[in-house]
Design a protein around this nucleic acid. Structure first.
Length: 567
RNA sequence: CGGGGUAUAGCGCAGCCUGGUAGCGCACUUGGUUUGGGACCAAGGUGUCGGGGGUUCGAAUCCCUCUACCCCGACCA
Protein backbone atom coordinates (compact mmCIF):
# COMPACT_ATOMS: atom_id res chain seq x y z
CA UNK A 1 0.00 0.00 0.00
CA UNK A 2 1.24 3.44 -0.91
CA UNK A 3 0.54 6.02 1.75
CA UNK A 4 -0.39 8.46 -1.00
CA UNK A 5 -3.39 6.20 -1.66
CA UNK A 6 -4.18 5.50 1.97
CA UNK A 7 -5.94 7.62 4.59
CA UNK A 8 -3.23 7.92 7.19
CA UNK A 9 -5.06 10.22 9.59
CA UNK A 10 -2.47 10.58 12.33
CA UNK A 11 -2.67 13.33 14.93
CA UNK A 12 0.17 15.04 16.74
CA UNK A 13 -1.97 16.08 19.64
CA UNK A 14 -4.01 13.79 21.85
CA UNK A 15 -7.74 14.53 21.84
CA UNK A 16 -8.69 15.73 25.31
CA UNK A 17 -11.37 13.17 26.15
CA UNK A 18 -9.18 10.10 25.62
CA UNK A 19 -8.12 8.81 29.01
CA UNK A 20 -6.35 5.54 28.56
CA UNK A 21 -3.36 4.90 26.35
CA UNK A 22 -5.07 2.59 23.87
CA UNK A 23 -7.83 5.11 23.23
CA UNK A 24 -5.31 7.92 22.80
CA UNK A 25 -3.13 5.92 20.46
CA UNK A 26 -6.05 4.62 18.40
CA UNK A 27 -7.17 8.20 17.84
CA UNK A 28 -3.67 9.49 17.21
CA UNK A 29 -2.81 6.67 14.83
CA UNK A 30 -6.01 7.32 12.89
CA UNK A 31 -7.59 3.93 13.57
CA UNK A 32 -10.96 5.10 14.87
CA UNK A 33 -13.08 8.23 15.13
CA UNK A 34 -15.89 8.85 17.55
CA UNK A 35 -19.40 9.40 16.25
CA UNK A 36 -21.22 9.68 19.60
CA UNK A 37 -20.79 8.28 23.11
CA UNK A 38 -19.67 4.68 22.76
CA UNK A 39 -20.04 4.69 18.96
CA UNK A 40 -16.99 4.61 16.74
CA UNK A 41 -16.15 4.48 13.06
CA UNK A 42 -13.19 2.37 12.04
CA UNK A 43 -10.82 4.05 9.62
CA UNK A 44 -8.88 1.95 7.09
CA UNK A 45 -5.89 1.47 9.38
CA UNK A 46 -7.96 0.32 12.33
CA UNK A 47 -10.14 -1.91 10.23
CA UNK A 48 -7.09 -3.78 8.94
CA UNK A 49 -6.23 -4.73 12.52
CA UNK A 50 -9.81 -5.64 13.36
CA UNK A 51 -10.00 -7.90 10.31
CA UNK A 52 -6.82 -9.68 11.30
CA UNK A 53 -8.18 -10.41 14.75
CA UNK A 54 -11.40 -11.67 13.19
CA UNK A 55 -9.46 -13.82 10.80
CA UNK A 56 -7.54 -15.58 13.54
CA UNK A 57 -10.69 -16.09 15.60
CA UNK A 58 -12.57 -17.44 12.58
CA UNK A 59 -9.80 -19.83 11.61
CA UNK A 60 -9.52 -21.30 15.07
CA UNK A 61 -13.28 -21.61 15.54
CA UNK A 62 -13.57 -23.40 12.20
CA UNK A 63 -10.71 -25.68 13.16
CA UNK A 64 -12.51 -26.50 16.40
CA UNK A 65 -15.49 -27.69 14.42
CA UNK A 66 -17.77 -24.71 15.00
CA UNK A 67 -20.00 -23.57 12.14
CA UNK A 68 -20.34 -19.92 11.22
CA UNK A 69 -23.77 -18.32 11.04
CA UNK A 70 -24.95 -14.71 11.01
CA UNK A 71 -27.92 -13.55 13.08
CA UNK A 72 -29.78 -10.22 13.04
CA UNK A 73 -28.83 -7.35 15.31
CA UNK A 74 -32.52 -6.43 15.60
CA UNK A 75 -34.44 -8.93 17.67
CA UNK A 76 -38.17 -9.25 18.39
CA UNK A 77 -39.34 -8.77 21.97
CA UNK A 78 -41.33 -12.02 22.01
CA UNK A 79 -38.20 -14.15 22.15
CA UNK A 80 -36.86 -12.16 25.06
CA UNK A 81 -40.19 -12.43 26.82
CA UNK A 82 -40.10 -16.16 26.31
CA UNK A 83 -36.70 -16.50 27.97
CA UNK A 84 -37.77 -14.10 30.72
CA UNK A 85 -34.98 -11.62 30.01
CA UNK A 86 -37.18 -8.88 28.51
CA UNK A 87 -38.00 -7.81 32.06
CA UNK A 88 -34.75 -8.87 33.71
CA UNK A 89 -32.10 -7.44 31.42
CA UNK A 90 -32.72 -3.84 32.38
CA UNK A 91 -31.83 -0.56 30.73
CA UNK A 92 -28.79 -1.96 29.00
CA UNK A 93 -31.15 -3.51 26.48
CA UNK A 94 -31.96 -0.88 23.88
CA UNK A 95 -35.63 -1.29 23.03
CA UNK A 96 -37.73 0.33 20.32
CA UNK A 97 -40.85 -0.12 18.27
CA UNK A 98 -41.24 -0.56 14.55
CA UNK A 99 -43.88 1.23 12.41
CA UNK A 100 -46.47 -1.31 13.49
CA UNK A 101 -45.71 -0.60 17.12
CA UNK A 102 -44.18 -4.05 17.54
CA UNK A 103 -41.45 -4.18 20.13
CA UNK A 104 -37.85 -4.96 19.27
CA UNK A 105 -34.41 -4.63 20.82
CA UNK A 106 -30.87 -4.34 19.55
CA UNK A 107 -29.15 -7.60 20.43
CA UNK A 108 -26.67 -7.39 23.31
CA UNK A 109 -26.15 -11.17 22.98
CA UNK A 110 -27.88 -13.93 21.02
CA UNK A 111 -28.92 -16.83 23.26
CA UNK A 112 -32.59 -16.32 22.43
CA UNK A 113 -32.06 -16.11 18.69
CA UNK A 114 -29.82 -19.14 18.39
CA UNK A 115 -32.09 -21.19 20.62
CA UNK A 116 -35.07 -20.24 18.49
CA UNK A 117 -33.11 -21.21 15.38
CA UNK A 118 -31.95 -24.51 16.77
CA UNK A 119 -35.27 -25.68 18.16
CA UNK A 120 -36.64 -25.53 14.63
CA UNK A 121 -33.78 -27.19 12.85
CA UNK A 122 -32.28 -29.65 15.31
CA UNK A 123 -34.62 -32.50 16.03
CA UNK A 124 -32.47 -35.52 16.67
CA UNK A 125 -29.61 -36.50 18.92
CA UNK A 126 -27.84 -37.51 15.68
CA UNK A 127 -27.35 -33.83 14.89
CA UNK A 128 -25.53 -33.27 18.18
CA UNK A 129 -23.29 -31.96 19.48
CA UNK A 130 -23.28 -28.80 17.40
CA UNK A 131 -21.54 -25.49 17.87
CA UNK A 132 -22.51 -22.30 16.00
CA UNK A 133 -20.73 -18.99 16.02
CA UNK A 134 -20.92 -15.57 14.47
CA UNK A 135 -18.77 -12.46 14.36
CA UNK A 136 -21.27 -9.68 14.60
CA UNK A 137 -22.14 -6.26 15.96
CA UNK A 138 -23.61 -6.15 19.45
CA UNK A 139 -25.29 -3.24 21.18
CA UNK A 140 -25.36 -2.69 24.91
CA UNK A 141 -26.66 0.61 26.19
CA UNK A 142 -23.98 0.97 28.85
CA UNK A 143 -24.66 3.56 31.53
CA UNK A 144 -21.27 4.99 30.95
CA UNK A 145 -19.36 3.97 27.86
CA UNK A 146 -15.70 4.88 28.16
CA UNK A 147 -12.15 4.12 27.16
CA UNK A 148 -12.97 4.32 23.45
CA UNK A 149 -13.45 0.97 21.82
CA UNK A 150 -12.69 -0.80 25.11
CA UNK A 151 -16.16 -0.20 26.51
CA UNK A 152 -18.22 0.92 23.58
CA UNK A 153 -21.98 0.61 23.27
CA UNK A 154 -21.71 -0.86 19.80
CA UNK A 155 -18.93 -3.40 19.47
CA UNK A 156 -17.93 -6.51 17.62
CA UNK A 157 -18.15 -9.83 19.33
CA UNK A 158 -17.57 -13.40 18.36
CA UNK A 159 -20.29 -15.35 20.08
CA UNK A 160 -20.69 -19.11 19.89
CA UNK A 161 -23.40 -21.39 21.21
CA UNK A 162 -23.15 -25.15 21.54
CA UNK A 163 -25.93 -27.72 21.96
CA UNK A 164 -25.74 -31.09 23.63
CA UNK A 165 -27.73 -34.09 24.65
CA UNK A 166 -26.07 -34.26 28.06
CA UNK A 167 -23.67 -32.62 30.45
CA UNK A 168 -20.69 -34.75 29.51
CA UNK A 169 -20.96 -33.70 25.88
CA UNK A 170 -21.24 -30.07 27.01
CA UNK A 171 -18.17 -30.49 29.18
CA UNK A 172 -16.31 -31.93 26.23
CA UNK A 173 -17.09 -28.98 23.93
CA UNK A 174 -16.40 -26.56 26.78
CA UNK A 175 -12.93 -28.06 27.12
CA UNK A 176 -12.39 -27.79 23.37
CA UNK A 177 -13.41 -24.13 23.50
CA UNK A 178 -11.06 -23.53 26.41
CA UNK A 179 -8.20 -24.90 24.33
CA UNK A 180 -9.35 -23.01 21.25
CA UNK A 181 -9.38 -19.73 23.15
CA UNK A 182 -5.93 -20.48 24.46
CA UNK A 183 -4.71 -20.99 20.90
CA UNK A 184 -6.44 -17.82 19.69
CA UNK A 185 -4.84 -15.59 22.30
CA UNK A 186 -1.46 -17.19 21.72
CA UNK A 187 -1.73 -16.52 18.00
CA UNK A 188 -2.79 -12.96 18.69
CA UNK A 189 0.54 -12.56 20.45
CA UNK A 190 -0.93 -11.45 23.76
CA UNK A 191 0.02 -12.21 27.34
CA UNK A 192 -3.15 -13.59 28.86
CA UNK A 193 -4.54 -15.72 31.62
CA UNK A 194 -7.64 -17.91 31.89
CA UNK A 195 -9.41 -17.56 35.23
CA UNK A 196 -12.43 -18.95 37.04
CA UNK A 197 -15.29 -16.51 36.70
CA UNK A 198 -18.68 -15.45 37.90
CA UNK A 199 -21.51 -16.11 35.46
CA UNK A 200 -23.20 -12.72 35.90
CA UNK A 201 -26.09 -11.78 33.65
CA UNK A 202 -25.78 -14.70 31.26
CA UNK A 203 -26.35 -17.37 33.90
CA UNK A 204 -25.31 -21.00 34.11
CA UNK A 205 -22.78 -22.94 36.16
CA UNK A 206 -19.14 -23.31 35.14
CA UNK A 207 -17.40 -20.34 33.60
CA UNK A 208 -13.93 -19.08 32.72
CA UNK A 209 -12.78 -15.65 31.65
CA UNK A 210 -9.76 -14.92 29.49
CA UNK A 211 -7.90 -11.80 30.49
CA UNK A 212 -5.24 -9.87 28.65
CA UNK A 213 -2.80 -8.81 31.35
CA UNK A 214 -2.33 -5.05 31.54
CA UNK A 215 -1.91 -2.68 34.46
CA UNK A 216 -4.76 -0.56 33.17
CA UNK A 217 -7.16 -3.52 33.23
CA UNK A 218 -10.52 -3.00 34.93
CA UNK A 219 -10.57 -6.45 36.52
CA UNK A 220 -8.41 -7.86 39.27
CA UNK A 221 -7.39 -11.47 38.96
CA UNK A 222 -5.85 -13.66 41.61
CA UNK A 223 -3.44 -16.42 40.66
CA UNK A 224 -1.27 -18.88 42.49
CA UNK A 225 2.44 -18.28 42.16
CA UNK A 226 3.23 -21.96 42.08
CA UNK A 227 -0.02 -23.80 41.31
CA UNK A 228 -2.57 -23.60 38.49
CA UNK A 229 -5.25 -21.74 40.42
CA UNK A 230 -6.42 -18.48 38.83
CA UNK A 231 -9.70 -16.70 39.38
CA UNK A 232 -11.34 -13.35 38.98
CA UNK A 233 -11.09 -11.66 42.39
CA UNK A 234 -14.90 -11.51 42.27
CA UNK A 235 -14.85 -15.30 42.53
CA UNK A 236 -11.63 -16.18 44.32
CA UNK A 237 -12.29 -18.04 47.57
CA UNK A 238 -10.48 -17.34 50.77
CA UNK A 239 -9.48 -20.14 53.12
CA UNK A 240 -10.41 -20.03 56.77
CA UNK A 241 -7.37 -19.28 58.95
CA UNK A 242 -5.57 -22.38 60.22
CA UNK A 243 -5.49 -23.47 63.85
CA UNK A 244 -7.45 -22.55 66.94
CA UNK A 245 -8.62 -19.05 67.64
CA UNK A 246 -6.33 -17.46 70.27
CA UNK A 247 -7.66 -17.44 73.85
CA UNK A 248 -9.36 -14.33 75.17
CA UNK A 249 -6.94 -12.41 77.38
CA UNK A 250 -8.66 -9.04 77.84
CA UNK A 251 -11.88 -7.94 79.41
CA UNK A 252 -14.37 -6.12 77.21
CA UNK A 253 -14.18 -2.38 77.76
CA UNK A 254 -16.06 0.65 76.49
CA UNK A 255 -13.69 3.40 75.33
CA UNK A 256 -14.49 6.96 74.33
CA UNK A 257 -13.66 7.56 70.67
CA UNK A 258 -14.98 11.05 69.88
CA UNK A 259 -15.23 11.83 66.18
CA UNK A 260 -13.46 8.57 65.28
CA UNK A 261 -15.30 6.57 62.62
CA UNK A 262 -13.25 4.87 59.94
CA UNK A 263 -11.11 1.82 60.70
CA UNK A 264 -8.08 3.94 59.91
CA UNK A 265 -9.05 6.59 62.45
CA UNK A 266 -9.92 4.05 65.13
CA UNK A 267 -6.77 2.01 64.72
CA UNK A 268 -4.59 5.12 64.94
CA UNK A 269 -6.54 6.56 67.82
CA UNK A 270 -6.41 3.36 69.87
CA UNK A 271 -2.98 2.35 68.56
CA UNK A 272 -4.08 -1.07 67.38
CA UNK A 273 -3.55 -2.59 63.95
CA UNK A 274 -6.52 -2.48 61.54
CA UNK A 275 -6.32 -6.27 61.44
CA UNK A 276 -7.28 -6.28 65.15
CA UNK A 277 -10.42 -4.22 64.44
CA UNK A 278 -13.56 -5.43 62.80
CA UNK A 279 -15.96 -3.55 60.58
CA UNK A 280 -19.67 -4.09 60.50
CA UNK A 281 -21.63 -3.44 57.32
CA UNK A 282 -25.41 -3.41 57.27
CA UNK A 283 -26.98 -4.58 54.03
CA UNK A 284 -30.42 -5.53 52.87
CA UNK A 285 -31.40 -9.14 53.38
CA UNK A 286 -34.31 -11.22 52.22
CA UNK A 287 -36.12 -10.39 55.48
CA UNK A 288 -34.90 -7.01 56.62
CA UNK A 289 -31.42 -5.81 57.43
CA UNK A 290 -28.49 -8.17 58.04
CA UNK A 291 -24.95 -7.46 59.24
CA UNK A 292 -21.73 -8.46 57.50
CA UNK A 293 -18.63 -8.49 59.65
CA UNK A 294 -15.10 -8.29 58.29
CA UNK A 295 -11.63 -7.73 59.64
CA UNK A 296 -10.67 -4.04 59.45
CA UNK A 297 -7.96 -4.54 56.87
CA UNK A 298 -10.17 -6.62 54.57
CA UNK A 299 -12.62 -5.51 51.86
CA UNK A 300 -16.08 -6.89 51.23
CA UNK A 301 -16.62 -9.01 48.13
CA UNK A 302 -20.11 -8.01 47.06
CA UNK A 303 -20.44 -10.80 44.48
CA UNK A 304 -19.64 -13.56 46.94
CA UNK A 305 -21.81 -12.02 49.65
CA UNK A 306 -24.84 -11.73 47.38
CA UNK A 307 -24.71 -15.46 46.69
CA UNK A 308 -25.82 -16.33 50.22
CA UNK A 309 -29.58 -16.89 50.21
CA UNK A 310 -30.25 -14.57 53.16
CA UNK A 311 -28.43 -11.65 51.58
CA UNK A 312 -30.01 -9.53 48.84
CA UNK A 313 -28.78 -9.94 45.30
CA UNK A 314 -27.41 -7.69 43.97
CA UNK A 315 -25.88 -6.60 47.24
CA UNK A 316 -27.53 -3.40 48.48
CA UNK A 317 -26.41 -1.38 51.47
CA UNK A 318 -28.99 -0.41 54.08
CA UNK A 319 -30.23 3.17 54.04
CA UNK A 320 -28.55 5.46 56.63
CA UNK A 321 -31.99 6.40 57.98
CA UNK A 322 -32.95 2.77 58.49
CA UNK A 323 -29.67 2.16 60.29
CA UNK A 324 -30.21 5.07 62.63
CA UNK A 325 -33.71 3.86 63.39
CA UNK A 326 -32.59 0.30 63.98
CA UNK A 327 -29.33 0.81 65.88
CA UNK A 328 -29.44 4.40 67.05
CA UNK A 329 -26.11 5.50 65.59
CA UNK A 330 -24.43 6.14 62.24
CA UNK A 331 -22.35 3.83 60.08
CA UNK A 332 -19.03 4.73 61.70
CA UNK A 333 -19.97 3.36 65.12
CA UNK A 334 -21.51 -0.01 64.25
CA UNK A 335 -20.47 -3.24 65.94
CA UNK A 336 -21.85 -6.76 66.28
CA UNK A 337 -22.26 -6.77 70.09
CA UNK A 338 -25.96 -6.66 71.04
CA UNK A 339 -26.85 -6.04 67.44
CA UNK A 340 -30.29 -7.40 66.91
CA UNK A 341 -30.06 -8.63 63.29
CA UNK A 342 -28.69 -11.79 61.65
CA UNK A 343 -24.90 -11.55 61.61
CA UNK A 344 -22.62 -13.09 58.98
CA UNK A 345 -18.95 -13.09 59.83
CA UNK A 346 -16.01 -13.56 57.51
CA UNK A 347 -13.69 -16.44 58.47
CA UNK A 348 -10.82 -14.11 59.31
CA UNK A 349 -12.94 -11.88 61.52
CA UNK A 350 -14.35 -14.97 63.24
CA UNK A 351 -10.80 -16.02 64.07
CA UNK A 352 -10.00 -12.84 66.01
CA UNK A 353 -9.90 -12.53 69.76
CA UNK A 354 -9.60 -9.38 71.89
CA UNK A 355 -10.75 -7.27 68.94
CA UNK A 356 -12.00 -3.71 68.61
CA UNK A 357 -15.41 -2.82 67.21
CA UNK A 358 -18.03 -0.08 67.29
CA UNK A 359 -20.29 0.12 70.37
CA UNK A 360 -23.44 1.05 68.40
CA UNK A 361 -23.24 4.39 70.13
CA UNK A 362 -21.82 7.59 68.66
CA UNK A 363 -18.34 8.30 70.03
CA UNK A 364 -17.78 4.90 71.64
CA UNK A 365 -16.00 1.70 70.70
CA UNK A 366 -15.42 -1.62 72.44
CA UNK A 367 -12.02 -3.19 73.02
CA UNK A 368 -11.10 -6.68 74.15
CA UNK A 369 -14.19 -8.16 72.53
CA UNK A 370 -14.36 -11.94 72.19
CA UNK A 371 -16.66 -14.26 70.29
CA UNK A 372 -18.48 -16.81 72.44
CA UNK A 373 -18.09 -14.67 75.53
CA UNK A 374 -19.26 -11.13 74.75
CA UNK A 375 -21.42 -12.15 71.84
CA UNK A 376 -22.52 -15.49 70.38
CA UNK A 377 -20.16 -17.74 68.41
CA UNK A 378 -20.32 -16.45 64.86
CA UNK A 379 -21.50 -18.25 61.75
CA UNK A 380 -18.35 -17.88 59.68
CA UNK A 381 -18.56 -17.62 55.89
CA UNK A 382 -16.45 -16.36 53.00
CA UNK A 383 -17.16 -12.66 52.52
CA UNK A 384 -13.95 -10.86 51.73
CA UNK A 385 -11.80 -10.20 48.68
CA UNK A 386 -8.64 -12.24 48.48
CA UNK A 387 -5.41 -10.32 48.86
CA UNK A 388 -1.90 -10.80 47.62
CA UNK A 389 -0.17 -13.18 49.99
CA UNK A 390 -3.30 -15.20 50.87
CA UNK A 391 -2.90 -18.95 50.50
CA UNK A 392 -4.26 -20.32 47.23
CA UNK A 393 -7.64 -22.05 47.66
CA UNK A 394 -6.24 -25.22 46.09
CA UNK A 395 -3.64 -25.21 48.87
CA UNK A 396 -0.82 -24.89 46.38
CA UNK A 397 1.21 -21.73 46.78
CA UNK A 398 0.41 -18.13 47.53
CA UNK A 399 -1.90 -15.79 45.62
CA UNK A 400 -0.75 -12.79 43.64
CA UNK A 401 -3.07 -10.15 42.20
CA UNK A 402 -2.77 -8.86 38.62
CA UNK A 403 -4.86 -6.52 36.51
CA UNK A 404 -6.59 -7.86 33.43
CA UNK A 405 -8.83 -6.85 30.55
CA UNK A 406 -11.59 -9.36 29.97
CA UNK A 407 -11.51 -10.36 26.30
CA UNK A 408 -13.12 -13.78 26.40
CA UNK A 409 -15.67 -15.57 28.51
CA UNK A 410 -16.92 -19.15 28.25
CA UNK A 411 -19.97 -20.51 30.07
CA UNK A 412 -21.74 -23.77 30.60
CA UNK A 413 -25.31 -22.53 30.43
CA UNK A 414 -26.91 -25.89 31.03
CA UNK A 415 -30.65 -25.81 30.39
CA UNK A 416 -31.37 -22.22 31.36
CA UNK A 417 -32.48 -21.08 27.90
CA UNK A 418 -33.39 -24.41 26.35
CA UNK A 419 -35.78 -25.08 29.22
CA UNK A 420 -37.42 -21.66 29.06
CA UNK A 421 -37.71 -21.81 25.30
CA UNK A 422 -38.43 -25.52 24.98
CA UNK A 423 -35.52 -26.52 22.78
CA UNK A 424 -35.94 -30.30 22.63
CA UNK A 425 -34.57 -33.22 20.66
CA UNK A 426 -35.38 -36.90 20.55
CA UNK A 427 -32.77 -39.17 22.05
CA UNK A 428 -31.91 -42.73 21.02
CA UNK A 429 -34.96 -44.04 22.81
CA UNK A 430 -37.25 -41.54 21.14
CA UNK A 431 -37.75 -39.52 24.31
CA UNK A 432 -37.84 -35.74 24.27
CA UNK A 433 -34.78 -34.29 25.99
CA UNK A 434 -34.08 -30.67 26.83
CA UNK A 435 -30.85 -29.55 25.21
CA UNK A 436 -27.82 -28.53 27.24
CA UNK A 437 -26.10 -25.37 26.08
CA UNK A 438 -22.73 -23.71 26.28
CA UNK A 439 -21.85 -20.20 25.14
CA UNK A 440 -18.51 -18.70 24.30
CA UNK A 441 -17.74 -15.00 23.71
CA UNK A 442 -14.75 -13.06 22.49
CA UNK A 443 -14.65 -9.25 22.44
CA UNK A 444 -13.13 -8.87 19.00
CA UNK A 445 -13.00 -5.08 18.92
CA UNK A 446 -11.90 -4.95 22.55
CA UNK A 447 -8.93 -7.16 21.71
CA UNK A 448 -7.60 -4.41 19.46
CA UNK A 449 -7.58 -1.96 22.36
CA UNK A 450 -6.28 -4.56 24.81
CA UNK A 451 -3.38 -5.39 22.50
CA UNK A 452 -2.38 -1.73 22.55
CA UNK A 453 -2.71 -1.46 26.32
CA UNK A 454 -0.26 -4.31 26.60
CA UNK A 455 2.08 -3.29 23.78
CA UNK A 456 3.11 0.34 23.43
CA UNK A 457 5.91 2.76 24.25
CA UNK A 458 6.48 6.54 24.14
CA UNK A 459 6.51 6.54 20.37
CA UNK A 460 3.26 4.66 19.90
CA UNK A 461 1.80 1.26 19.29
CA UNK A 462 3.87 -1.93 19.05
CA UNK A 463 1.70 -4.44 17.20
CA UNK A 464 2.17 -8.13 17.70
CA UNK A 465 3.13 -9.35 14.27
CA UNK A 466 -0.05 -11.33 13.56
CA UNK A 467 -2.39 -8.40 13.97
CA UNK A 468 -0.25 -5.53 12.69
CA UNK A 469 -2.04 -3.48 10.00
CA UNK A 470 1.09 -3.77 7.86
CA UNK A 471 4.13 -5.94 8.32
CA UNK A 472 6.80 -3.67 6.95
CA UNK A 473 7.24 0.09 6.57
CA UNK A 474 9.27 1.04 3.53
CA UNK A 475 10.76 4.48 4.05
CA UNK A 476 12.73 6.12 1.25
CA UNK A 477 14.80 9.14 2.25
CA UNK A 478 14.19 12.14 0.00
CA UNK A 479 12.92 10.07 -2.85
CA UNK A 480 11.71 13.16 -4.69
CA UNK A 481 15.28 14.38 -5.02
CA UNK A 482 17.05 11.14 -5.78
CA UNK A 483 16.08 9.16 -8.84
CA UNK A 484 18.33 6.38 -7.57
CA UNK A 485 16.47 6.09 -4.27
CA UNK A 486 13.16 6.18 -6.14
CA UNK A 487 14.11 3.42 -8.59
CA UNK A 488 15.53 1.14 -5.92
CA UNK A 489 12.55 1.64 -3.61
CA UNK A 490 9.95 1.09 -6.33
CA UNK A 491 11.74 -2.07 -7.31
CA UNK A 492 12.00 -3.29 -3.76
CA UNK A 493 8.32 -2.49 -3.15
CA UNK A 494 7.40 -4.72 -6.10
CA UNK A 495 9.56 -7.59 -4.88
CA UNK A 496 8.33 -7.47 -1.32
CA UNK A 497 4.76 -7.51 -2.49
CA UNK A 498 5.46 -10.49 -4.70
CA UNK A 499 6.57 -12.27 -1.56
CA UNK A 500 3.14 -11.61 -0.10
CA UNK A 501 4.50 -9.19 2.48
CA UNK A 502 2.15 -6.40 3.53
CA UNK A 503 4.20 -3.32 2.88
CA UNK A 504 3.32 0.26 3.73
CA UNK A 505 5.33 2.35 1.29
CA UNK A 506 5.77 5.94 2.45
CA UNK A 507 5.84 7.60 -0.95
CA UNK A 508 4.88 11.02 0.41
CA UNK A 509 7.16 14.00 0.02
CA UNK A 510 7.78 14.09 3.75
CA UNK A 511 10.88 14.66 5.81
CA UNK A 512 12.47 11.58 7.34
CA UNK A 513 11.46 12.51 10.87
CA UNK A 514 7.81 12.55 9.91
CA UNK A 515 8.08 9.13 8.28
CA UNK A 516 9.82 7.60 11.27
CA UNK A 517 7.40 9.11 13.75
CA UNK A 518 4.36 7.94 11.76
CA UNK A 519 5.65 4.41 11.25
CA UNK A 520 6.34 4.11 14.96
CA UNK A 521 3.05 5.67 16.04
CA UNK A 522 1.02 3.22 13.98
CA UNK A 523 3.21 0.41 15.22
CA UNK A 524 4.50 -1.33 12.08
CA UNK A 525 6.70 -4.19 13.37
CA UNK A 526 9.47 -3.91 10.76
CA UNK A 527 11.07 -0.95 9.02
CA UNK A 528 13.32 -0.67 6.04
CA UNK A 529 15.02 2.64 5.21
CA UNK A 530 16.41 3.38 1.76
CA UNK A 531 18.77 6.33 1.49
CA UNK A 532 21.64 7.60 -0.64
CA UNK A 533 23.91 6.99 2.30
CA UNK A 534 23.17 3.26 2.37
CA UNK A 535 23.00 2.83 -1.38
CA UNK A 536 26.60 4.02 -1.65
CA UNK A 537 27.55 1.09 0.54
CA UNK A 538 25.13 -1.32 -1.10
CA UNK A 539 22.91 -1.67 1.98
CA UNK A 540 19.45 -0.91 3.33
CA UNK A 541 18.83 -0.17 6.93
CA UNK A 542 16.56 -2.43 8.96
CA UNK A 543 15.04 -1.82 12.36
CA UNK A 544 12.46 -3.82 14.27
CA UNK A 545 9.88 -1.76 16.16
CA UNK A 546 11.34 -2.90 19.49
CA UNK A 547 15.01 -2.89 18.49
CA UNK A 548 17.30 -0.33 20.07
CA UNK A 549 19.41 0.08 16.99
CA UNK A 550 19.13 -0.24 13.26
CA UNK A 551 21.28 -2.66 11.29
CA UNK A 552 22.57 -2.73 7.75
CA UNK A 553 21.32 -5.37 5.36
CA UNK A 554 23.04 -6.08 2.04
CA UNK A 555 20.78 -5.08 -0.84
CA UNK A 556 21.11 -8.47 -2.54
CA UNK A 557 20.12 -10.22 0.63
CA UNK A 558 17.20 -8.13 1.70
CA UNK A 559 14.27 -10.34 0.67
CA UNK A 560 15.67 -13.37 2.50
CA UNK A 561 16.50 -11.21 5.48
CA UNK A 562 13.01 -9.76 5.76
CA UNK A 563 11.36 -13.11 5.14
CA UNK A 564 13.33 -14.63 7.97
CA UNK A 565 12.42 -11.72 10.26
CA UNK A 566 8.68 -12.03 9.78
CA UNK A 567 8.44 -15.77 10.29
C1' C B 1 -29.55 7.44 37.48
C1' G B 2 -26.62 10.28 41.79
C1' G B 3 -22.23 13.62 42.25
C1' G B 4 -18.63 16.90 39.57
C1' G B 5 -17.24 19.39 35.02
C1' U B 6 -16.97 21.04 29.82
C1' A B 7 -19.07 22.99 25.14
C1' U B 8 -15.32 28.91 20.91
C1' A B 9 -12.01 26.61 13.35
C1' G B 10 -10.56 19.51 11.70
C1' C B 11 -7.45 18.86 16.73
C1' G B 12 -5.53 21.31 21.35
C1' C B 13 -6.75 25.80 23.73
C1' A B 14 -7.20 31.49 25.10
C1' G B 15 -11.00 35.29 25.34
C1' C B 16 -16.07 35.32 29.55
C1' C B 17 -14.71 37.84 35.82
C1' U B 18 -15.11 43.83 34.06
C1' G B 19 -20.55 43.25 27.34
C1' G B 20 -18.14 46.92 22.14
C1' U B 21 -18.88 42.59 16.92
C1' A B 22 -13.41 36.45 17.80
C1' G B 23 -7.91 34.93 18.59
C1' C B 24 -3.33 31.50 19.38
C1' G B 25 -0.69 26.72 18.35
C1' C B 26 -1.13 22.36 15.34
C1' A B 27 -3.41 20.67 10.89
C1' C B 28 -4.92 22.34 5.77
C1' U B 29 -3.83 25.27 0.66
C1' U B 30 -0.02 27.95 -2.41
C1' G B 31 5.09 29.51 -3.19
C1' G B 32 10.07 29.27 -1.56
C1' U B 33 14.28 27.45 1.46
C1' U B 34 15.32 22.82 3.78
C1' U B 35 15.82 17.26 4.09
C1' G B 36 18.49 10.58 8.39
C1' G B 37 13.97 11.84 13.92
C1' G B 38 7.11 15.27 14.00
C1' A B 39 11.61 21.84 9.80
C1' C B 40 11.68 27.25 8.52
C1' C B 41 9.85 31.78 5.91
C1' A B 42 5.86 34.12 3.36
C1' A B 43 0.91 34.33 1.75
C1' G B 44 -4.04 32.13 2.33
C1' G B 45 -8.92 29.57 3.65
C1' U B 46 -11.63 28.02 7.78
C1' G B 47 -16.27 29.65 12.75
C1' U B 48 -24.74 28.78 13.24
C1' C B 49 -18.78 30.94 19.83
C1' G B 50 -23.65 23.60 21.42
C1' G B 51 -29.42 24.94 20.59
C1' G B 52 -33.57 28.10 22.07
C1' G B 53 -35.26 32.23 24.76
C1' G B 54 -34.33 36.75 27.63
C1' U B 55 -31.68 41.49 29.43
C1' U B 56 -29.17 45.42 26.52
C1' C B 57 -28.15 50.47 21.72
C1' G B 58 -24.94 46.15 21.54
C1' A B 59 -24.06 39.24 24.09
C1' A B 60 -18.93 34.21 23.05
C1' U B 61 -19.20 37.28 27.60
C1' C B 62 -24.87 38.55 31.97
C1' C B 63 -29.78 35.65 33.11
C1' C B 64 -33.24 31.40 32.07
C1' U B 65 -33.79 26.87 29.63
C1' C B 66 -32.74 22.62 26.72
C1' U B 67 -29.07 19.35 24.57
C1' A B 68 -24.53 16.88 23.89
C1' C B 69 -20.01 15.28 25.73
C1' C B 70 -16.30 14.12 29.67
C1' C B 71 -14.86 12.46 34.80
C1' C B 72 -16.21 9.54 39.67
C1' G B 73 -19.98 5.41 41.20
C1' A B 74 -23.13 0.58 39.89
C1' C B 75 -22.99 -3.06 34.90
C1' C B 76 -20.15 -5.97 31.08
C1' A B 77 -17.11 -8.92 25.53
Amino acid sequence: MRISHFLLATLKETPADAEIISHQLMLRAGMIRKLAAGLYSWLPLGLRVLRKVEHIVREEMDKAGAQEVLMPAVQPAELWQESGRWDKYGLELLRFKDRHAREFCLGPTHEEIITQLIRHDIRSYKQLPANFYQIQTKFRDEIRPRFGIMRAREFIMKDAYSFHLDQSSLQNTYDIMFETYTRIFKRLGLKFRAVLADTGNIGGNASHEFHVLADSGEDAIAYSTTGDYAANVEMAETLAPQGERPQASQAMNVVETPEQHSIEEISQFLKVSPSQCIKTLLVKGENGIVALVLRGDHTLNAIKAAKYPDISSPLTFAEPNDIRELVGCDIGSLGPVNLNVPIFVDHSAAHLSDFVCGANKEGQHLTGVNWGRDLPEPQAIDLRNVEAGDPSPDAKGILEIARGIEVGHIFQLGKKYSQAMQALVLDEQGRSVILSMGCYGIGVSRIVAAAIEQNHDKSGIIWPQNIAPFTLALLPMNMHKSQRVRDVTENLYQKLQEQGIEVLFDDRKERPGVMFANAELIGIPHRLVIGERGLDKGVFEYKGRCDDKAQSVAMDNVIEFITSKIL
